[in-house]
């Protein structure tokens, strides 16, 4: 296993950060877009673009919710995304500490 085999969807600084942040949520739990944006310190446009790419890869689920009159987007890792992130993390660990 070498660096070239790391999942290219995740293996980009911004998207890795998005996946890492979302991975702290339990299965089924979602975070609002504004809160996620705040945690990551990205602009709304920037985060939207990264989420769209991750959604296209099937790694995140975006749901629109209407709380009162304000629509808000809820974000969560999909099951596939969670597996992909776990595999990415395991691969990185293996690169850092190769099994003998």
């Amino acid at each position: 296993m070498h660096e070239g085999e790391l999942d290219p969807v995740i293996h980009a600084q911004a998207r890795l950060r998005v996946m890492a942040a979302l991975s702290t949520l339990d299965d089924g739990d979602q975070v609002t877009f504004p809160r996620l944006q705040e945690i990551l310190g990205m602009t709304a446009g920037n985060l939207s673009a990264h989420l769209r790419k991750l959604e296209d890869a099937g790694y995140v689920d975006l749901t629109k919710k209407f709380s009162g009159r304000m629509p808000t987007t809820l974000v969560a890792l999909s099951r596939r995304g969670r597996h992909a992130f776990e595999e990415y993390t395991a691969a990185v660990r293996a690169l850092l500490d190769p099994p003998k």
Partner: peptide, 17 residues
């Protein structure tokens, strides 16, 4: 990569929980 994962998970955890 590992550092980014750690830092971001800690930041998210601190804020969300």
């Amino acid at each position: 990569s590992m550092r980014l994962i750690r830092e971001q998970r800690a930041a998210a955890g601190r804020r969300l929980f």
